[in-house]
Design a protein around this nucleic acid. Structure first.
Lengths: 205, 205
DNA sequence: GCAATTTCCAACCAAGTAGTTGCAATTGGC
DNA sequence: GCCAATTGCAACTACTTGGTTGGAAATTGC
C-alpha cells in the first residue's frame, strides 16, 4: 500500500469529507479521519498541514464536484428553475456540501472563511446565471443565485422545519422541491421582465 | 446576590444563549457560561440539568422571543412581504436565533431535535400565514413559511456568499432584504391566485 | 439574631484532544 | 537484491472538557 502518495491523499480527503460533514470543523476528530481512511495520522499533517487546512481542501474539492455535476444550462426562467431543481436533488441525495458550507459559516468568523466559498467559485456561477437570463445585471443575478442556493442548501440542514409538511419524508422532499423550483422560476421571470422594461425605457449600449 | 433564584436563572440563560449562539452545542463551554453569568458552575446542573437541556431551554426561549417580537399581521401578499422584511431585520441586527437553529440542525440528528423547533411553535406561525392569505391551504402556507424562514435565517449564517454582492456590508444587507421581501410578496401573491382559481373551479364548502 | 437555603470556592476525576516523535516495516525503481 | 522514500505503530506531551463533591460564606424570612 505504500509508495502511492496520490491514493493516500484521496483516501484521506474522502474520509475527511465524511467526518467534517458529520461533525463540523471543531467536532471532527483527526484520529477518526485517519482510522476511516485506513491511513496513519501523521500523513494528514504531512500532506495537508493542520486540521483547518484539511477542511479547506475538503470544502474546495466538494464545491468543484457539485459545480461540475450540476451545471447551469439552457436559457430562460424555466431553465433556471430546472437548475434549482437539480441542485435540490443533488443536495437531497447527498447533503455533504450544504453541511460543510453551514459549518463553515457558523464556526468561522467572517474574515477566516475559506477562499473557496468566499468568491472564487461562486462568482463563476453568477456569470452562468447571467448567461441563462440575458439582460439581467450582475447584482440581480447574484441575488437570485443566493436565494436559490440558500433554499437548496438549507433544506438538508434543517431537519426541524420539514416537520411542518405532511406525509412521508420522500413526499415532503417532493413538495419542497416543487416549491423551490417554482420560486426560482418565478423570480427569474420577474428579473427578466425588469431587465427588458429597463432596456426599453433607456436603450443602452 | 444570593436568594434570588429567578434572577440567577435569567443570568445563566442569557449567558448560555450567547455562548451557544457563538459556539454551538458541542463547542459551548459550561465554564464560560458560568463565568459570563457571574454564577457558579453547579447552578447550571442544579437548575437546567445537563448541557443539552440548557440548550433546549435557550432555544425555546429565543423562539418565543422572536415570535412575539415579529408578529404576522395584516392581510394580503404585501402584508406577508412586510413580515418577511421585519423578520430579516430582526435576524440581521441579532443573529442569535438563526445560529441556534442551524447549530441544532447540524449537530443533532433528525430524531433528537428539540420539541421547540420541531413543530410546537412553528405550527402556530403556519396558522398565522393562513390568516394573512385567506384561502391558501395549510400545506401551501407551510411551504411559503419555510421559504421565508430559510431565506431570513440563512443570511446571518452564511457570511461567505454575501461576498457575491457589491458595496459595504450595510448596502449588501439592504439589497438582500429587498430581494427577500420581493420573493415573499411574489410567492404569496402566486399562492393566493392559485387558491382563488381553485375555489372558482370547485366552489367548496 | 436564628435557621434554612442558596451560593461561592476550589479542587477533583476520568476521558478525550491536536499534534509530535522515534523506529521498524514496507514498497517501488533500478 | 539494494537503496531511498513512504508508511504503520505506539507512545507521549501538554491541555481541555463535562460533571461532581465537600465545606464555608452569604442571604433572607421571621
Amino acid at each position: 500500500m505504500a509508495w502511492n502518495t496520490e491514493r493516500t491523499k484521496e483516501l484521506l480527503l474522502a474520509a475527511a469529507t465524511a467526518e467534517f460533514s458529520a461533525n463540523g470543523l471543531a467536532g471532527a476528530r483527526v484520529d477518526r479521519i485517519a482510522a476511516a481512511a485506513g491511513v496513519n495520522k501523521e500523513r494528514i499533517y504531512q500532506y495537508f498541514g493542520k486540521k483547518d487546512d484539511l477542511f479547506d481542501a475538503v470544502l474546495a474539492a466538494e464545491m468543484i464536484r457539485v459545480m461540475t455535476e450540476v451545471p447551469i444550462r439552457g436559457s430562460g426562467p424555466e431553465a433556471f428553475g430546472d437548475y434549482a431543481g437539480r441542485l435540490f436533488d443533488r443536495h437531497t441525495t447527498d447533503g455533504v456540501l450544504p453541511r460543510l458550507v453551514f459549518w463553515e459559516g457558523l464556526e468561522r468568523g467572517r474574515e477566516t472563511v475559506s477562499r473557496a466559498t468566499r468568491t472564487d467559485h461562486c462568482a463563476i456561477k453568477v456569470g452562468q446565471v447571467m448567461d441563462v437570463l440575458p439582460g439581467v445585471d450582475r447584482e440581480d443575478a447574484a441575488d437570485l443565485l443566493i436565494t436559490v442556493v440558500t433554499l437548496c442548501d438549507g433544506w438538508p440542514v434543517l431537519p426541524q422545519i420539514d416537520a411542518l409538511l405532511a406525509g412521508s419524508a420522500p413526499d415532503r422532499a417532493v413538495r419542497r422541491r416543487a416549491a423551490i423550483v417554482r420560486t426560482a422560476t418565478l423570480m427569474a421571470g420577474a428579473l427578466l421582465t425588469d431587465a427588458r422594461a429597463k432596456e426599453a425605457a433607456h436603450p443602452g449600449v
